[in-house]
Design a protein around this nucleic acid. Sequence first.
DNA 1: ATGGTTTTTACTGCGTC
DNA 2: GACGCGGTAAAAACCAT
Length: 340
Amino acid sequence: MSTNLTNTEQSVVSNTKREHEEERKGATEAVDVCPECGGNLVSDEEHAETVCDGCGLVVETDAIDHGPEWRAFDANERDSKSRVGMPTTKMMHDNGLSSNIGWQDRDAYGRMLSPTQREKMQRLRTWDERFRTRNSKERNLKQALGEIDRMASALGLPENVREMASVIYRRALKEDLLPGRSIEGVASASVYAAARQAGVPRTMDEVATVSRIDEMEFKRTYRYIIRELSLEVKPADPEQYLNRFESEFDLEPATKRRAHDLLKTAKEAGITSGKSPVGLAAAALYAAALLEGEGVTQDAVSSVADVSTVTIRNRYHDLLAVAGETDALPASVTADEASA
DNA sequence: ATGGTTTTTACTGCGTC
DNA sequence: GACGCGGTAAAAACCAT
């Protein structure tokens, strides 16, 4: 990595060679000092967050990526991908405008064609078909990539997730999964899957709100895409959500550590499987705050994490039981277990 | 389609400020 | 009385079969 360059030189280089993103990926630069513990604030591009390397405080989330959503590897591609003017979302599909070659082997007067001409027409049909479908797929892709970029930006997802999303989308397109499904739906599903795979999960609700489609349709499409492409999306790690939720509250570093510890012991005890990772993260946060005596209500956690208070209660009971913190449990629970 | 599991919704009672 | 919390039952959602 170009550590021998000064900052200004680096910015010049990266401006002139924007396509060399890989070189900068994962590069971390100290920008400020943590208000919590005095550690260095580091911008974590992969998670689009600014984090303290000492205590893990997330200072800023959803950093905006101002770059274009496409990547160009040569001048030709740059020309073809760059678009100025009408946004792709407004792009028209030319339904009814493209011409068609009839199937009847007759000329304009209704006479049968000669065998040689018939053969020629057959070849033309073949190529016409190839040409048209190819074009329609390319138009489709262009619009979809625009949508993927829009949603990824709105969700504060980093560039590598966009790439993954467009790769997924391309595969879906290639496998002819699009007919019968909206471009928007498949694009949303690609973004969601890519975010999960990249370890920067967003909840389905979050994706659905920035998407233009119905939430139901989105979920249906997502499952379909996953199944048909046999993408393996590992269950999201609760800790990924935990980091994001924590930053919504003023918490002591000790509390955050506690929350992470609770999740760890829960994982080792094997009570996490089958439970929603969002709920677990929310419960860990609440339980830690409870143990450390911080004034965090179930309601507050519930609204941040978009999980019901009931779920938080159930999960945090599990967490505390496994962690051996039975003192903190409400008296009624332990009494019930004694009677049963 | 179906059944089992998990989450949500809605409602209630209890204690505290 | 409002609020935070706990518990329950029924409904809804989810997932694999």
